[in-house]
Design a protein around this nucleic acid. Structure first.
Lengths: 111, 111
DNA sequence: TGACTTTATCGTATATTCACGATATACGTT
DNA sequence: AACGTATATCGTGAATATACGATAAAGTCA
């Protein structure tokens, strides 16, 4: 059988999982880091800093964009990317809620 | 070509990505939720609450365990699972650091 | 001992991810 | 107009993830 049972779970779980998937590759983590470091729109230097092929970096950028974590505008021959403040805030809130939920000190555990 | 360039990135990025991958499936999110809700070791009721085949749930449990987010002991015919407080705390800290890094209000962005 | 229960593991099929090179696109420059 | 530059997209292949049924393992109970 195949896989695609993800939609049977509650939407909050799906949202967390989707954000997590978006940042589940070190290249994408470092792209976000680079964008935060520059603290401004940058046009393409990302490819120079990530040791992957240009097409691969472009793919990672696309994933981050579709997850809502970055925004990008294509300006003819060059593109401008920056962090999407709203998306990152949403991820931060959702993760925060989830972490505080599971961070309960389960003292009853005797494993 | 194949994929396995993940080890060329810095270890912090890899660690974040690994934790993110561990929670990048809604079933695993809900397993963590169930464990937190019960607030104790539970033996197998997870399979009843997750609408997936028993073998699939077992696989998800294995992934969470290898990521250090849960601990489990096999007690003969049944297993006991609970949240791994240390692992969750580590994930929480690492994510918190990363989020605060990228949450900078990048007012210079003009995208 | 033999049946039953519970869970992990194996084998397998399909889907997705990751990575690359090649190409297309779109603009600027000469 | 022709060339160059920067970036996205396409096509492809390998690796991994997801899901299931079947089976194995290990204990309990009649």
């Amino acid at each position: 059988m195949a896989n695609n049972k993800k939609e049977i779970f509650c939407s909050n779980s799906q949202k967390i999982a989707d954000f997590a998937k978006a940042i589940s590759h070190p290249a994408r983590i470092e792209i976000l880091r680079i964008l935060a470091e520059k603290n401004s729109c940058i046009c393409g230097e990302i490819v120079l800093e990530i040791p992957l092929a240009q097409s691969t970096v472009s793919q990672h950028l696309k994933e981050l964009k579709s997850a809502g974590l970055i925004s990008g505008i294509i300006e003819g021959p060059r593109s401008c990317y920056c962090l999407n403040v709203e998306g990152i805030a949403e991820m931060s809130v959702i993760f925060g809620e989830f972490f505080s939920l599971i961070k309960i000190e389960n003292i009853k555990c005797n494993c």
